[in-house]
């Protein structure tokens, strides 16, 4: 579903992504973790081309998103992206946030879009907030709206960039529950997150990144009990101390 083939990226002189080759299969849930500055966010942002790459190929659902002449917008409509700071549109109601893209890009009629949006809101558990504005919602509710917004165009892949890092602890659970139910329904997901419980519950594989490289790819069980790379082990022991 997502294929990285020898991907390199530089910020000026800084080598942000180093010779990345990896694959996310259809229906797979991959959790990307690692210390701060390891390139996890950069990597996931290259998948829908919010970041450019300098070498290598990234394929999503068979097509090269970084190729010249790609219809970038149609591509992005097929990829759902959830940001760390939600990035909901404050001048639009919750419902309008969700119907905007399907109506303008997906060619749906407004009533159609509204119907699907209400169904999505019900699925993430906040159908009653449809006419509220984002600023009036709690952080956890906003992020769930953001997930619904990303799901509205029925993407083939969902990308999550530290979706719970900006939330107060008591709201992390409600967002993770939505993500877990998506995973169980068979969505292909790539998640940058520190929530190891999530990785253990629904993750198929864990990628450990450090300084721009993927140092280890293993199942959650293997990773948490018997990580091979010394830096992965150091990272895990740091996590446990907290």
């Amino acid at each position: 579903m997502i294929k990285f083939n020898r991907v390199d990226k530089w910020y000026g002189d800084y080598h942000a992504l180093v010779d990345i080759s990896a694959e996310v299969a259809r229906g797979e849930v991959v959790v990307v973790c690692g210390p701060s500055g390891s390139g996890k966010s950069t990597l996931i942002r290259t998948v829908n081309r919010l970041e450019e790459i300098h070498k290598g190929v990234i394929e999503v659902d068979g097509a090269d998103i970084h190729a010249r002449g790609t219809d970038l917008n149609r591509f992005r409509a097929n990829i759902g992206f959830v940001f760390q700071s939600f990035n909901l549109f404050p001048h639009l109601s919750v419902l309008a946030n969700i119907t905007l893209a399907p109506a303008k890009v997906g060619g749906q009629s407004l009533p159609q879009a509204r119907e699907s949006a209400m169904a999505l809101l019900a699925r993430v558990g906040i159908a009653d907030k449809a006419s509220a504005y984002p600023q009036q919602l709690s952080g956890g509710q906003q992020q769930r709206v953001a997930i619904a917004r990303a799901l509205a165009q029925k993407p083939a892949v969902m990308l999550f960039d530290e979706p719970t890092s900006a939330l107060d602890p008591e709201m992390v659970g409600e967002v993770l529950n939505v993500m877990k139910s998506l995973a169980r329904d068979g969505m292909t997901m790539m998640c940058v997150t520190h929530e190891m419980g999530f990785a253990r519950d629904v993750g198929h594989r864990v990628w450990f990144m450090d300084r721009g490289r993927i140092l280890e790819q293993s199942t959650p069980d293997e990773f948490f009990t018997a990580a091979r790379h010394p830096r992965a082990q150091a990272f895990l022991s740091d996590l446990r101390e907290h």
Binding site: N48, L50, N73, R74, F75, R76, A77, N78, I79, F81, F83, S85, N87, L88, F89, H91, L100, A101, K104, V105, G106, R149, A150, Q153
Partner: peptide, 23 residues
């Protein structure tokens, strides 16, 4: 990030301007 979020949804540059940034 507002413009970025709009583009991530598949809205073109002008659509993102028209519906998200300019309002």
């Amino acid at each position: 990030t507002q413009h970025e979020a709009a583009r991530a949804l598949g809205l073109s540059f002008l659509q993102s301007m028209r519906w998200v940034v300019v309002p």
